[in-house]
């Protein structure tokens, strides 16, 4: 199987779909001439020209709203948020229009739109430039929210996103653009609403998504090497909304314990929802309370040591597993 970076996987999904369907266009800041701030859209301008690869001014509210209008006319725009932090300037358009037009038009209009860009922290960008927005966008009915971690899923889910009839919030693992992985040749899609079992195990279920999944896999390695080895199952949610309850519950029925890990703040978050679903649907199977490991309840700091302390670490996960196993 060919090996690609996460960045190339996203680009190849967009390019393939642009070849196939000329209603697909890309717009955003510095995506064309500049090559894309994170080079995800690099070369697309040369290939598809300025009518389909549209450089915009720094006006997130305006161009996101315009993309919603294009989508209502039957185009399939992909908006690049240079980073998701700037989507707050477009939040009125996303929440008030994209998420609701289908509903309040009684189904007469729809918004087949993808908004994509890097999400999450880890590179010392401090308070205004560090957010994990899965829970925030996942709160709104009418939006679909996904967060792939492997190049394979980045490509497969991007193809699904572009073809989806509804607005998709595509949260990329910004810190992982350069990581490599196998991606099948030719056309393939990864459906929404289907979690991935990233590692099988029997003693505890570790649940995460985005770049946290890699950390969970490392934690699982360490747990397996403990004196009394712990076999952790790792579930990569991938799709935040729609949500794969089945895979999650099947795993917890097997392991009887769950640790949910996220970079975002704990209050009113994805982990809170996951914990609630587990207790609603697998209460009798649980041998311990569901553990949540989350970001520190503070805006993101700049200093390296503070930022490291602000995000969940491998050790935090291991400690939570020990608590769940009463060790």
């Amino acid at each position: 199987m060919p090996v690609m970076t996460y960045r190339e996987a996203l680009r190849s999904a967009m390019a393939d779909e642009m070849e196939r369907d000329d209603s697909v266009v890309v717009l955003g800041e510095d995506i064309g001439v500049y090559g894309g701030t994170h080079l995800v859209t690099d070369t697309l301008l040369d290939r598809f020209g300025p009518k389909r690869v549209i450089d915009t001014p720094i006006a997130e509210g305006g161009f996101t709203g315009a993309a919603i209008g294009m989508a209502m006319m039957g185009m399939r725009p992909i908006v690049e948020m240079m980073t998701w932090n700037f989507s707050f300037q477009a939040v009125d358009q996303i929440l008030q229009n994209a998420a609701k037009v289908r509903y309040f038009s009684g189904g007469q209009a729809g918004v087949p739109l993808v908004i994509r860009g890097p999400n999450g922290g880890g590179v010392q960008l401090s308070a205004q430039h560090t957010h994990s927005l899965e829970g925030f966008y996942g709160h709104f009915p009418g939006l679909k929210v996904v967060s792939p971690v492997t190049p394979h899923d980045a490509k497969g889910m991007m193809l699904t996103a572009i073809r989806d009839p509804d607005p998709v919030i595509f949260l990329e693992a910004g810190a992982l653009y350069g990581t490599k992985g196998e991606v099948p040749e030719g056309e393939f899609t990864v459906p929404f609403g289907k979690a991935r079992v990233a590692r099988e195990g029997t003693d505890v279920t570790l649940v995460g998504y985005g770049r946290q999944v890699n950390m969970l896999l490392r934690a699982a390695d360490r747990l397996a090497e403990e004196e009394e080895p712990i076999a952790a199952e790792v579930i990569d949610l991938r799709s935040i909304r729609p949500f794969d309850t089945e895979t999650l519950i099947a795993s917890v029925r097997k392991t009887h314990r769950a640790v949910v890990v996220q970079e975002q703040w704990r209050w009113y978050s994805v982990a809170s929802e996951v914990a609630a679903i587990i207790q609603e649907q697998a209460f009798d199977d649980l041998d311990a309370p569901v553990e949540r490991v989350s970001g520190a309840e503070a805006p993101a700091p700049y200093a390296r040591n503070l930022e490291i302390a602000a995000f969940p670490s491998e050790q935090d996960v291991i400690d939570a597993v020990h608590r769940a196993l009463y060790r």
Binding site: Q124, L125, S126, A127, Q128, P301, Y302, A303, N305, L306
Partner: peptide, 19 residues
Amino acid sequence: AELYGKGTGLVKGKGGSMH
């Protein structure tokens, strides 16, 4: 010191260059 993310920085290392 702020750019270096140090506690002696202008905003105690919390904001960095941009803040």
